[in-house]
Amino acid sequence: MTDLPAATQRKMGLVIDLDTCVGCHACVVACKGWNTEGYGAPLSDQNPYGANASGTFLNRVHSYEVTPETGSAQLVHFPKSCLHCEDAPCVTVCPTGASYKRTEDGIVLVDESSCIGCGLCAWACPYGAREMDKAAGVMKKCTLCVDRIYNEHIPQEDRVPACVRTCPAGARHFGDLGDPDSDVSQLVAERGGMDLMPEMGTKPVNKYLPPRPRDEEPVMDVLGPLLEPVADTPDGLLGWLDRQLSKL
């Protein structure tokens, strides 16, 4: 049923570090690579080598420019995927029961065999986390790599979502955000992890770690004095030019 569970035993989710993310899109590629051949229908592309390439992705990396009132602008790379919300509006709107939130770990999934492809869940999600696959006609979304994290046929270190496993910058963390003692919960507490669009009332499980404050911009470099021009008045050809021009 599309009733949301009153509480889930665990709240599995991601913590994404906006300070560390370098915007390399490796998580996007790893996600597409794993999920196009794993759980459910493949993530199709339309016209992939043509002029108007388009396709289904469960994870996309945006980039934003933040300009503070003082100081220089900063570029923030921003990976975005399903936040596995506690009050997931995408689940309750589903007319068929294809969308559901698991009681045992809080993962929001789509049973593709009962999805009618009405698209209402994608409308209900404020984050744009759900995409209708054009080829399969069913809704696709992040599964938190449910077919990796409990998979006893792969080595222990691979039992994390593909995006987390591949991130070369260590900007993605996976764990139980319902357990205050877990590594991810400690990280969120330490770094002031935040919710996206808290005003939408979705109570997202995934958290984002804000960029760390920047160092003070230097007033003067320690080597600065050594680089200052020695002579104020040029000599030689430039000096002659300067004198002639001043006479005009």
Partner: peptide
């Protein structure tokens, strides 16, 4: 600002979209 959580740090501007092509979200929403 609230969508990215970065609003408290200054003015936020979309610098670069995730992909150069369009997608379901852009077409539908």
């Amino acid at each position: 600002g609230s969508a990215t959580g970065l609003g408290g740090r200054g003015a936020v501007r979309a610098f670069e979209p995730p992909h150069t092509g369009d997608n379901y979200l852009l077409r539908e929403m």
